[in-house]
């Protein structure tokens, strides 16, 4: 009797808590406004944006893309593992995902520190105002995503999720993938396109 109802819920709702998806849509809207503002401002300052873009460390940007993609893959594998009730493997994949997020933060901090040592700040010019604020806004989201994943990992490590009950894991995973999705646009926009 319960099967059709459960199947119906699974088909109609995204993975995890519905509230996180409302939050994800709000976050995507905020980033969308940010990206649009960047593009519109660039239209009036093309030479400045193109010149300043060359001062960014594109290798660091690409490395950070790899960290976030790898982190997202690990978290997706964690969800796939728990669906098979492989609890230890699920926790292990989650931990790798958190470490990948840590790698992103370390690289970004090196990037920020190089810019600050060169005397660059929000007031340097319009491009750097966008670069610093946009990437820092995303940086804070990575930290929040890692805090969520850490809380999920603590429960997963204790065997708190199973094939039948992994709602919390899917909720944390959905948020983490959103952070990855935003960077998929941010990297080419700020570091590459000209």
């Amino acid at each position: 009797m319960n099967s059709p109802a459960i199947a119906d819920i699974k088909v109609h709702h995204p993975p995890g808590d519905l509230a996180i998806w409302v939050f994800i849509l709000a976050e995507l809207l905020a980033f969308g406004v940010f990206f649009t503002t960047y593009v519109v401002t660039r239209m009036h300052n093309v030479a400045l944006f193109d010149e300043m873009q060359l001062t960014l460390d594109r290798n660091a940007g690409a490395l950070n893309t790899v960290f976030l993609i790898a982190g997202s893959w690990c978290v997706a594998r964690s969800v796939a593992a728990i669906k098979l009730d492989h609890r230890a493997a699920s926790a292990r994949w989650l931990l790798w995902g958190i470490l990948a997020g840590g790698g992103f933060l370390v690289v970004k901090l090196f990037e920020y520190s190089a810019k600050f040592e060169a005397g660059i700040n929000l007031a340097t010019n319009t491009f750097y105002m966008f670069y610093l604020s946009l990437t820092f806004f995303h940086f804070m989201h990575v930290i929040l995503g890692m805090v969520i994943l850490l809380a999920v990992w603590l429960k997963a490590h204790r065997g708190g999720y199973s094939a039948a009950d992994h709602h919390g894991l899917e909720t944390g995973a959905s948020y983490w993938h959103m952070v990855d999705l935003v960077w998929i646009i941010l990297f080419p926009l700020v570091y590459v396109m000209r």
Partner: peptide
């Protein structure tokens, strides 16, 4: 595939993929 919106009610993938395409189109 990572967010697992494949096979979910059309509203959710439409909203998120729609956001992606809209932002890329604006850019």
């Amino acid at each position: 595939d990572f967010m697992a919106l494949r096979g979910i009610n059309v509203f959710w993938p439409t909203m998120v993929i729609g956001w992606l395409l809209l932002v890329l189109g604006i850019i």
